[in-house]
Amino acid sequence: MLESKTNNTLLILDDEPNVLKALKRVLSGSGYNIHAFTRPYDAIEMLQEAEIGVIIADQCMPQMEGDEFLAIADQNQPRAVRIAISGYVDTSFKERATDGKDAWRYLTKPWNDDELRTVVTEAFKRFNSTTGD
């Protein structure tokens, strides 16, 4: 349904509205079509409705853990590039994320704005390079 070969749709999930605002602020102006959610079930609905290129999900949320959401995202959008973000150091999750089982990259809060922009840019390049016609 996309007219062009590239997809710039970014889904962000974090239960903290201020964190979402900050992520959107850092990433706006980069040409991304950003959809931000505080509730996992709303984000899952989006996964079922539109093709997503990159997903950023918080690990620690009250309704659903980030790795559970990312597993659902993988089932619904297997080509989407997944990025986990967390303010807590969960070594087992970080190991799984770095091994590519739950996510392609793992970032910690507070994040470095330049690193975040770079990681998201690389994620879109990775996603769009696998896009086939």
Rank of each mutant, 00 (worst) to 15 (best):
E49A: 11
E49S: 13
E49F: 04
A50T: 11
I52E: 03
G53L: 03
G53T: 02
V54F: 01
V54E: 01
V54K: 02
V54S: 03
I55V: 12
I55L: 09
I55R: 05
I56R: 06
A57P: 07
A57G: 06
A57E: 13
D58Y: 08
D58A: 07
D58P: 03
Q59F: 07
Q59E: 13
C60R: 09
C60F: 15
P62E: 08
Q63I: 08
Q63P: 06
Q63K: 10
Q63G: 07
Q63W: 14
M64W: 10
E65D: 09
E65L: 14
G66H: 04
G66C: 05
D67M: 09
D67I: 15
D67W: 11
D67S: 12
E68H: 15
E68L: 13
E68Q: 12
F69S: 01
F69H: 04
F69C: 04
F69T: 02
L70S: 04
A71Y: 08
A71G: 09
I72Q: 09
I72D: 01
A73C: 05
D74Y: 03
Q75G: 10
Q75Y: 12
N76I: 00
Q77V: 00
Q77F: 00
Q77D: 01
Q77E: 05
Q77R: 02
P78D: 02
P78K: 01
A80P: 00
V81A: 02
R82A: 02
R82Y: 03
I83Q: 02
I83T: 00
A84W: 03
A84P: 01
I85M: 09
I85C: 06
I85Y: 11
I85F: 06
S86N: 10
G87A: 13
Y88S: 10
Y88H: 14
Y88C: 12
V89D: 12
V89W: 10
V89E: 11
T91V: 07
T91D: 11
S92W: 12
F93Y: 09
K94R: 12
K94T: 07
K94N: 13
K94I: 07
K94P: 05
E95N: 11
E95S: 09
R96F: 08
R96Y: 07
R96P: 01
A97D: 01
T98Q: 15
T98W: 14
D99W: 07
D99A: 14
K101D: 15
K101F: 13
K101V: 14
D102W: 11
R105N: 03
Y106N: 04
L107V: 08
L107P: 05
L107F: 13
W111I: 07
N112A: 15
N112D: 13
N112K: 11
D113C: 08
D113Q: 13
D114V: 13
D114R: 15
E115P: 01
E115D: 06
E115I: 11
L116M: 05
R117L: 06
R117S: 04
R117E: 07
T118H: 15
T118S: 09
T118I: 14
V119G: 00
